[in-house]
Write a protein that binds this DNA or RNA. Structure first.
Lengths: 344, 344
DNA sequence: CGGGTACTCCGAAGCGATTCGGTGTCAGGA
DNA sequence: TCCTGACACCGAATCGCTTCGGAGTACCCG
């Protein structure tokens, strides 16, 4: 019966021999499955893995079977963005007696094959992925070993049973655009992030919704895309400002892009905020330091990281965890880069 | 002999029997000590504990005696500064099949007591400290276990046998000041970092040397100190610009400080670079993005981090390593925040 | 001096897990 | 039909560790 495998009393420890007996195989075979050795048929391996999981098998007696480690995986550690996440994860981990293993996967969609081997060796208490998704195989391996994982700001739309921490991207896009509209702007362009990321598309959708609500038709030539980097802000900003009918306001997909727009504007003699209003996204520290200070949508990165860490620890410790998907609120921070449109 | 403790083979795993043999007691006794059971005299317990530590005994499994881990310790992960270091360490570690454990010590002088316990449990291949120094006790513990460590940008003047990676701070200070002198400036102020950090004092010394070489007397009221943060740049910048005889150029101790000076100048209606030239230090990405782009002393942070990682790996693998103290070159990057002094 | 007691420590048994050599099975080829 | 090699799986040996009973020893008290 199903309930039998789930409601295992856990009074007595799970051992290889127990699992072996349940699976009707030898102890050696179970050991091989456990250590990923070859010489086990796929069907047997699957059956044994299933049973290992059901038994909640815990790598050698109950003592210290999991290392006090949290794995933190970035697709790229390439901006001040990452710092805020790292800080949040590190702090909460430390408060819970955990250390942080940091990995740069180099690929947005899945960490390298080597990575999972290292994780299996280290047996961390949990895994936190930023942006990166996991391959089905990796997810399966983690689940078999009972290692919980959480995705921060998931790139695609993750499966419903994958715990994730996000933020209210649609609202962010809406708020930013609405703010510009309230200032009198009508020609409002936006620079988005990559198309395949949910956060980008949600923000774009918020942007469109705000325009529509104000009765402004959205224009395709005012919607340009790129990565979230500074460079993209420069290039796309220049393109937008070179249009025959240039926008009077730009909603950038990130603070870095917004600073790129600053640079493009500077190079073209366009003054911010007099000739052009700019809104960023993220509220990194540099947003405050820019000249003029950047109006931006505050995304609580550190809080998201902290929440993700707490969630992954809860998933490890508690049998039942609610709220597997948490979205934190975004808010608009108005500074000096946006101004009332002066109709000349 | 010194070399004896260093040249521990570390080839085979630590086992109870090995420790027992060394301590001339039975395996059972060691087991009891390990598990805090009674029935062991205080003297024996102390001796066994000592040996367990020396062997780096690490509680069952884990096969190898050293984990493929590099410990990276910051006093504070609080600026874009850290990103560049982290990236460098992570990249080289990964290339060498290592993962990175990141810790924020919260204290510039020595990581918390808990920290060393974690390190001993993990048995990393090496430790990289940024800024933070180590207590004599921690150094001893690491040396006994044959875990090499490297200090990046050492705060104080480290002992001669402590491997370290620095940069040419004196030259950096000299170059920056010289550049300002060459532009015709005579009233050149500087904002330093903390007094107790070697990098600060070396830069200050370079600053003084450049002034002296040009026959300019250094003024005490032009030398102000603070932390390396943005906030300090604002406060100190405002102070300097409020002097009855304000400087026409400021050499800041960091890019963050320099951006703080930008803000102070903006608030006081002082234009950069027309009324005030500013030189930063570090060449973070934001230096390029600032308006105007910041003239700064490039400190090769990523290269320093990479070099530190390579060094720590060499220290682990090779019996003999030369060049325990490496200083990388600094260079001046001239951008838009410095200009010829216009004598009015 | 003899016997009891408390303490320290060891040896052997036993357990969980890994590993290696070996066995059974099955498919393909002569 | 038999041989052969690949593969899946098992059993026994072994390893690392814990535990328990008991031996050795020092000390105290009569």
């Amino acid at each position: 019966m199903y309930s039998e495998t789930v409601a295992r009393p856990a009074v007595s420890r799970a051992t290889l021999s127990r699992v072996a007996a349940d699976a009707s195989v030898s102890i050696s075979t179970v050991s091989k499955v456990l250590n990923g050795r070859m010489g086990v048929s796929d069907s047997t391996r699957a059956r044994v893995e299933e049973l290992l999981r059901d038994h909640g098998y815990n790598r050698r007696n109950s003592g210290l079977s999991v290392a006090p480690l949290i794995e933190l995986v970035f697709d790229a550690i390439d901006s001040a963005w990452a710092i805020e996440i790292i800080q949040g994860v590190e702090r909460i981990s430390r408060e819970n007696g955990m250390s942080v293993v940091l990995t740069e996967s180099g690929d947005r969609h899945s960490p390298s094959p080597d990575w999972i081997d290292g994780v299996m060796r280290r047996r961390p208490a949990g895994v936190i992925l930023v942006f990166s998704d996991l391959s089905a195989d990796h997810k399966h391996q983690l689940r078999v070993r009972n290692i919980p994982f959480v995705i921060v700001d998931p790139a695609g739309d993750p499966a419903p049973d994958v715990p994730s921490i996000g933020s209210a991207n649609w609202s962010g896009g809406y708020l930013a655009t609405r703010h510009l509209i309230d200032l009198g702007h009508r020609r409002i362009a936006t620079i988005t992030g990559p198309d395949d990321m949910m956060c980008s598309t949600a923000r774009l959708s918020g942007y469109r919704a705000a325009l529509e609500a104000a009765g402004i038709k959205s224009r395709d030539d005012y919607i340009v895309g790129g990565e979230f980097h500074h460079e993209d802000g420069i290039v796309r900003g220049r393109e937008l400002l070179s249009l025959p009918d240039p926008p009077t306001a730009i909603f950038a997909g990130s603070d870095l892009q917004a600073l790129g727009v600053y640079e493009a504007a500077r190079a073209m003699g366009v003054s911010i905020p007099d000739d052009l209003s700019v809104v960023g996204y993220d509220d990194l520290k540099i947003a405050l330091w820019a000249g003029p200070p950047l109006t931006t949508v505050r995304q609580p990165l550190t809080e998201m990281a902290e929440e993700a860490t707490r969630l992954v620890i809860r998933l490890r410790n508690d049998t039942q965890v609610d709220n597997l998907r948490i979205d934190l609120a975004t808010s608009l921070v108005v500074r000096g880069s946006t101004a009332k449109l002066v109709t000349s």
